[in-house]
Write a protein that binds this DNA or RNA. Sequence first.
DNA 1: TTTTTGGTTCTGTATTTTCAGAACTTAAAA
DNA 2: TTTTAAGTTCTGAAAATACAGAACCAAAAA
Lengths: 179, 179
Amino acid sequence: MQELNPDDEYQEQKKKSMTNVQLTQKQKELIERMGVFYERHGIPPMEGRIMSLLTVCDEPELTFDQIRELLVISKSATSSALNMLLLTQRVIYKTRPGDRKRYFTSNIVEWQESFTESFQKFFGVIKIMKEALNQRTPNTPEFNGQMAEFIEFIEYLSIEFPRLYSDWSNRKTNNNKNN
Amino acid sequence: MQELNPDDEYQEQKKKSMTNVQLTQKQKELIERMGVFYERHGIPPMEGRIMSLLTVCDEPELTFDQIRELLVISKSATSSALNMLLLTQRVIYKTRPGDRKRYFTSNIVEWQESFTESFQKFFGVIKIMKEALNQRTPNTPEFNGQMAEFIEFIEYLSIEFPRLYSDWSNRKTNNNKNN
DNA sequence: TTTTTGGTTCTGTATTTTCAGAACTTAAAA
DNA sequence: TTTTAAGTTCTGAAAATACAGAACCAAAAA
């Protein structure tokens, strides 16, 4: 084998860094299991697998090609799944200066921000629920009452929920102070 | 037209009660809109439509055949959608003495019971999350820390959440007492 | 300038889902 | 006993989804 000149070494380094990350058998297995877990929650299989990969893999920041290679899938599958995951805020990416690649990360690292938001989205039920309630006949007071209560409770939650979070994070920082 | 004998009258009555319920154009429209709303949340179209029907329709208790007729769908579609909705607890049914039919209702009338349960199911994320965290390399303390925090918060929620509900229902009954 | 990198978009196929329609089932009514 | 009511289950077709593979594209590197 020939001696490598500096450039070749650099290229070699780059090539290596692309396929550097490897998965153990156990990790592959866990990714599949998490995948079906996500699937059962209405997330498409490939998106579920990518989300799982990004929390299971030792390296939390993976590039497009690393994801493609680790999961052994096509570019198109990688592209569309990643774009959907970005759209639905389940994955984010960072860039690095002088590097064209994007480094994808599970949005678990920013769950604090995204959590409240996705809950807020869930609370969107009440909008259409209210509409349904408003058009209802007055002849079913019991049913209407239950609907109204449900709506009230969701509204209550949407107010109390952020407070619950801030309580928790306050408690956490206080604990840290005392230790 | 011939005079009806008592039996015919009874049959007539039964037939009528089967097709009695009607939907206004506005209601049909709302059902479709709610349907796509549910679809966007991962619920199959027909199940979404049935759920919507059961909250929009003036009559909150509908039979198999009323649902089938109001939505103009086949028996098989009605059957499988209803069974899935029963399985996932989104719809319940009541029976009536001396009546073989089942009367289906949106589980919104029992949301108090089913809400906490479905939240509990959501909290199931933490089980597989913990597994993922446990197998992680110790070389990514920041990422692992974020994961741990996320898990902690979900666990905190699963405890605080039921309390939030009981607080709300207490506040409600107190309000009613004072009024 | 040409080449490479990091993707996106298009085309087509295999799979899955979602129904309709008809045959079947089971308990009650006639 | 036969008939009816209230569904369930089976068969199959149409539509939607999930990909692979190849062509394409735009910016950066050579």
